[in-house]
Simulated assay, not measured.
Amino acid sequence: MTDIDQQFAQAQSDVTQLPERPGNLTLLRLYALFKQASVGDVQGEKPGFTDIAGKYKYEAWAALQGTSADDAKARYVELVESLKRGEAA
């Protein structure tokens, strides 16, 4: 396991232990970065207008298209670290 993989795994654990729940936009960023890091580019059909949450998740993930898995992992780790310090919410 590489260093970034270890940091990514630790960040996944840390995110469940945050002192306060992040805001919806931050949760979308976390979701999109996690999906890009673990699955790759967005897959499947974009949800319709009746699935608002699904549509936003899809769009957030699609915005990261072409981002490498290691870059997405590093950005995820950075975001979780900033949340642990209380810098972003």
Rank of each mutant, 00 (worst) to 15 (best):
Gly40Met: 11
Phe34Ala: 14
Gln36Ile: 09
Ser13Asp: 10
Thr26Asn: 04
Gln43Lys: 10
Ala37Asp: 11
Pro22Ile: 02
Lys35Phe: 01
Pro19Val: 07
Val15Trp: 03
Gly23Asn: 12
Gly23Thr: 14
Ala37Pro: 08
Ser13Pro: 09
Val39Arg: 06
Asp14Leu: 02
Thr16Arg: 06
Leu18Thr: 05
Ala11Trp: 02
Leu30Val: 09
Arg29Ala: 11
Gly40Leu: 00
Leu27Phe: 07
Leu18Pro: 06
Leu28Lys: 05
Lys35Gly: 01
Lys35Leu: 07
Ala9His: 05
Ser38Met: 12
Tyr31His: 08
Asn24Gln: 12
Glu20Gln: 12
Leu33Ser: 07
Ser38Ile: 04
Val39Met: 10
Ser13Phe: 03
Gln36Leu: 10
Asn24Val: 12
Thr16Phe: 01
Ala37Leu: 13
Glu45Met: 13
Val39Asp: 13
Ala9Gly: 02
Asp14Cys: 00
Gln43Gly: 06
Lys35Pro: 03
Arg21Thr: 13
Glu45Leu: 13
Gln10Pro: 05
Asn24Leu: 12
Asp41Tyr: 09
Gln43Trp: 02
Ser13Ala: 12
Leu27Trp: 09
Gln10Gly: 01
Leu25Phe: 15
Ser38Phe: 11
Gly23Ala: 15
Ala9Tyr: 06
Leu33Tyr: 01
Leu33Thr: 04
Phe8Gly: 07
Val15Phe: 04
Ala9Met: 04
Gly44His: 11
Thr16Asp: 03
Gly44Arg: 00
Gly40Ser: 10
Val42Ile: 12
Val15His: 00
Thr16His: 03
Leu33Arg: 03
Leu25Glu: 15
Tyr31Gly: 08
Gly40Val: 12
Asp41Ile: 10
Ser38Gln: 15
Phe34Gln: 14
Gly23His: 11
Glu20His: 09
Phe8Arg: 08
Val15Asn: 09
Ala37Ile: 14
Leu30His: 02
Gln17Arg: 03
Pro22Asn: 03
Asp14Lys: 04
Gln12Pro: 00
Asp41His: 10
Leu28Tyr: 01
Gln36Met: 08
Leu25Ala: 15
Leu25Cys: 14
Leu25Tyr: 14
